[in-house]
Design a protein around this nucleic acid. Structure first.
Length: 605
RNA sequence: CGGGGCGUAGCGCAGCUUGGUUAGCGCGCCAGUUUUGGGAACUGGAGGCCGCGAGUUCGAAUCUCGCCGCCCCGACCA
């Protein structure tokens, strides 16, 4: 349909029958001032741009623009999941307690619990391993039906201790969760690689370049897992990165390399028990004794089953419980209760030390402690510490190893370099679960040898609503958001500067119509607002391509701009549609190029 | 759950210390006039359970107690 050659302000209503894309009718309540509740860049921009509104802590409305972005992210996700042969399903948001009880997760405190009228227990689904495993155990019998990958995109509920950052950590959030079922571990590796490709491509197409890091899988385990971390100063997680060899791991997981121990040639000072009244914490002891925490050794009493263990780390370090458990060859460790501590140290909590500890206690230490001399330790006596303690002379350590939480400057475990830290926002997490759930839930298939075997599973999660925040968190400037074209709320905004100017009206409506007919997702801003308002709102919204119908329209020209580079070009109205289509094609091509570059998992090949 | 802060118009805030007319200001919103290439000007309007509940008082946005909500730091985080 060609526009009427004499369009004016009054006739726009009639001309544009599909009114959904007109800014005057679009519900996008922009704010000039930043709501006091928002701290993070993305949170501020999403609120200011009218993408989201808060309903309660961690619970948000997605307004038209925000929901359009969500739908576009979901579209990319579906394309990439389907391309890997995964099949979309939809599981219930309300999950009966029995399913979570089967695997012992019913008592997790993140569950939103509810009861029906008959007092039966349910919770809002927070992740769906049990539900999907239940599907499989009912209807999947034979190895011939494998491999299988089922996914869903759904709102989840988790009663987070502290929601933050808008949709970064919500209590209700939209997530992709996929679950793979395989016959063998090799098959699981293949399924995992496919998900790696799907996830990496999805993030790339959404304008994100997350680091892939090794991560802890939590108390319930799983064989191998990787997190996708968007590097951002506002990220909640600390990631250790080796710039030389590319090793990257979450702080909870990061291994610390072993280096030759350098003992200083200081003289051994005599061990001395000194009074430290009420000095229990490192901070208190440090200020009382006027010694740096680096001259202190913390003694942490743990229980690994029946065995009581004293773990030693330097005063300014944190013990990594997973590493301790792994050194001791147990699944998990827990801090000893006050009675146990009193029994083995003969002192109140806060004064444990390795010197004169009960003989039944195994003493292990972080490698860093091996090089320390004349340090301070707890006195195993209430209100007392030893100064000038030394290994070998005053006590023995049965094993040294990597026990502390890695921090900046620690040696890399994979090369001779040292580790640096960056902050990251987790947008995806992929796991090899193995038979963790299938065994607990009795989900098995009949293999070709006639034996019943548990499914070998993987699970793959991606935070869709978190990406709504993560993308602008790393793609914005002073004027607002800068969306990659594949997930932008609109691909193109046509700005009609003066609706009373006939030439401008003609140009804007013509281009709007032409672009729509070409399948472009385009918004026409024909609002009765001053030009500045429209420019500001358009920049804030962050659509990648802007077409300005202004003064130049009288000369048969419009201005075509790119949001990302702020570039401006004057183009004749006759060529404008073709020009915009070409820009659009290039932008999509760029994101596809990035997707192709990242699709192979470097950690596994 | 621990520490800190905040709740007054849609948004941002003042007023509270030292109780006392009709609770203010800016932005936004509505009407009109003039404007129209980077968040216009003027005129006139609408809009408040001052978070909720008890108390003190002749009188409470303001003082006291309790509760609720929200934000930040920490703990937590499949």
């Amino acid at each position: 349909m060609l526009p009427d050659p004499t369009v004016n302000r009054q006739s726009i209503d009639i001309l544009i029958t599909e009114g959904r894309m007109r800014a005057s009718q679009l519900f996008f309540p922009t704010l000039r001032e930043v709501p006091a509740e928002a701290e993070m860049i993305s949170h501020r921009l999403l609120l200011r741009g009218g993408f989201i509104r808060k309903v309660a802590a961690g619970i948000y409305d997605y307004l038209p623009l925000g929901y359009k972005v969500i739908k576009k992210i979901e579209k990319v996700v579906r394309e990439e999941m389907d391309a890997q042969g995964a099949q979309e399903i939809l599981m219930p948001a309300i999950v009966p307690a029995e399913l979570y009880q089967e695997t012992g997760r019913w008592n997790l405190d993140v569950l939103f619990r509810l009861k029906d009228r008959n007092d039966r227990d349910y919770s809002i689904g927070f992740t769906h391993e049990e539900v999907v495993t239940d599907i499989i155990r009912r209807d999947l019998r034979s190895y011939r039906q494998l491999p299988l990958n089922l996914y869903q995109i759904q709102s989840k509920g988790r009663d987070e201790a502290r929601p933050r950052g808008g949709t970064v950590r919500g209590r209700e959030f939209i997530m992709l969760d996929a679950y793979s079922f395989d016959r063998t571990w090799d098959d699981l590796d293949r399924a995992y690689d496919k998900m790696y490709a799907a996830f990496s491509r999805t993030f790339a197409r959404c304008g994100l370049a997350p680091l892939v890091v090794e991560a802890e899988s939590g108390a319930i385990g799983g064989k191998e897992n990787q997190e996708y971390m968007v590097v951002a100063d506002s990220g909640e997680d600390i990631i250790l990165v080796c710039e030389k060899c590319g090793y990257a791991a979450n702080a909870e997981k990061a291994e610390i390399g072993e280096r030759p121990v350098k003992k200083s040639d200081d003289e051994l000072q005599p061990l001395e028990l000194v009074d430290t009244p009420n000095a229990r914490t490192i901070e208190q002891v440090t200020s009382f004794l006027k010694r740096s925490p680096k001259k202190l050794v913390k003694t942490l009493i743990y229980k690994a089953g029946e065995q009581v263990v004293a773990a030693l780390v330097r005063g300014d370090r944190d013990l990594n419980e997973a590493k301790l458990a792994s050194m001791l060859g147990v699944k998990s460790v827990e801090m000893a209760d006050p009675e146990t501590i009193l029994r083995v140290t003969k002192a109140d909590v806060g004064f444990a030390g390795p010197v004169g500890l009960d003989k039944s206690v195994k003493i292990v230490a972080d490698r860093e402690v091996q090089g320390m001399m004349n340090f301070v330790v707890g006195g195993n006596k209430t209100d007392a510490h030893y100064i000038n303690a030394n290994i070998g002379r005053d006590f023995e350590v049965s094993e040294f190893g990597d026990l502390r939480v890695a921090s900046k400057g620690d040696p890399c475990a994979r090369c001779e370099n040292t580790l640096t830290t960056v902050r990251g926002m987790e947008v995806g997490h992929i796991f090899k679960l193995g038979t963790l759930y299938s065994e607990k839930m009795g989900a098995g298939f009949l293999d070709d040898d006639g034996q019943e075997k548990p499914f070998i599973m993987g699970c793959y999660g991606m935070g869709v609503s978190r990406m709504l925040a993560a993308i602008p968190e790393v793609n914005s400037d002073q004027d607002g958001m800068v969306w990659p074209i594949s997930v932008a709320p609109f691909e193109v905004v046509v700005i009609l500067l003066n609706p009373d100017d006939e030439a401008q009206c003609n140009a804007a409506t013509r281009l709007y119509e032409e672009l729509q007919q070409q399948g472009v997702d385009v918004l026409l801003d024909e609002r009765d607002e001053r030009p500045g308002v429209k420019f500001k709102d358009t920049d804030l919204m962050g659509a990648p391509i802007q077409v300005v119908a202004g003064r130049l329209a009288g000369e048969g020209k419009v201005e075509v701009r790119l949001r990302s580079t702020k570039s401006k070009e004057e183009i004749s109205i006759d060529d404008a549609t073709a020009h915009v289509l070409e820009l659009r094609r290039k932008l999509y091509q760029e994101s596809e190029d990035k997707a192709q570059a990242v699709a192979v998992n470097p950690q596994l090949h």
